[in-house]
Design a protein around this nucleic acid. Sequence first.
DNA 1: ATTAACATACAGGCTGCATGTATGCAACAG
DNA 2: CTGTTGCATACATGCAGCCTGTATGTTAAT
Lengths: 208, 208
Amino acid sequence: MQQESARRSNRDRTEATRADLVAAARKLFTEKSYAETGTPEIVTAAGVTRGALYHHFADKQALFAAVVEQEAQAVAQEIDRASPPSLEARDALIAGSDAYLAAMRVPGRTRLLLLDGPAVLGRAAMDAIDDRHGNRSLREGLVAAMRANRMTRLPAEALTALLASAFDRAALAIEAGASAEDYRAVLMALIDGLSPGRPQAPGPARTR
Amino acid sequence: MQQESARRSNRDRTEATRADLVAAARKLFTEKSYAETGTPEIVTAAGVTRGALYHHFADKQALFAAVVEQEAQAVAQEIDRASPPSLEARDALIAGSDAYLAAMRVPGRTRLLLLDGPAVLGRAAMDAIDDRHGNRSLREGLVAAMRANRMTRLPAEALTALLASAFDRAALAIEAGASAEDYRAVLMALIDGLSPGRPQAPGPARTR
DNA sequence: ATTAACATACAGGCTGCATGTATGCAACAG
DNA sequence: CTGTTGCATACATGCAGCCTGTATGTTAAT
């Protein structure tokens, strides 16, 4: 138990305050929405004042960006852990898909990353964040599959973006209460449809 | 040219004022964003006061919902005009796809319908709006294709949502300056991948 | 005369900034 | 090596402007 009001180096103070602010903001931004969360509430939860917030972040949006970045990284980490490079191309894609859907079940993550994120930061900024984290592995997996002739050759950029958006939408639907099996089945069908050799997967395909 | 301050029935006044407000809000919400547009600015552009706005709409969000509804209907109308029921299943899907991408090129529509809409109204409310307008025809087209055995049987709800989200993302990317041909090619590949009989489309498939 | 359609005025809250203060830190003097 | 001096960093507090939603007043329709 270290002394609370002991002397701390400036570096430590900055790091701690920033971490407290991001943690408090993350909690509130996932419980409520970006618009419904005010900076007074955030700083109270973090145990600092608004002066500290505006000293470390340019504005409320910059704090939000820091939260999104951290959360996107957490999701990417869970995916990477679930799909090691030892797996074969298609298996890695499937494992990564399931890991993504599982990661997005953390409450509030879909709103943070899929609703508020694009609206507040813009699609371009969100693309940059995604490319730094989650989308990178997806894209590498797709390129690898295409190189191995396991998949129809298509523009990698576009294919990555469109598949990623389908995953995003699946995560939103599942959180809203839709059938996870249905959405998973469609996602797999979309992926398998891109394999030239395999006409269709023999999985359970009900029309409901 | 009718007299401006002539007597108007209450019904006409309401209709005209609501239309003016929605039109002014549409213009500003597409030029800027929902958050950056204030109600004072909207009512000034519409030539009324804030009292009129809050008389006709519960709050700023309700006015936004009206704008989104109108814009979604306009998009759906353009799609329906481009894909008459006379076309065969797959041709209708392709024609509708191109019409959608063309309709979404109207400046500001992507932000209104794809970024601010879901964030402000929530994904559930946006789903309801989409189902009333655009997604209905897409879903009917997909079900028709599946019934005719031109497409792998999959849960219609999920398939519609995921394909629609891919289209949305393509519209966003194209507006951001990405290659429309690339995204169109991937969309077509995704659709054709769902047809059991057709292993792959012979179109131009570069990897870039 | 009653109600609908507004206009005006007001209260509360929030964001961003500007100013004030205390603490860490680096260099130099002794 | 130590104490002091000067500056930068890390905050806290107070203020100005704006915005949203509501309550009240006024005019026109029915």
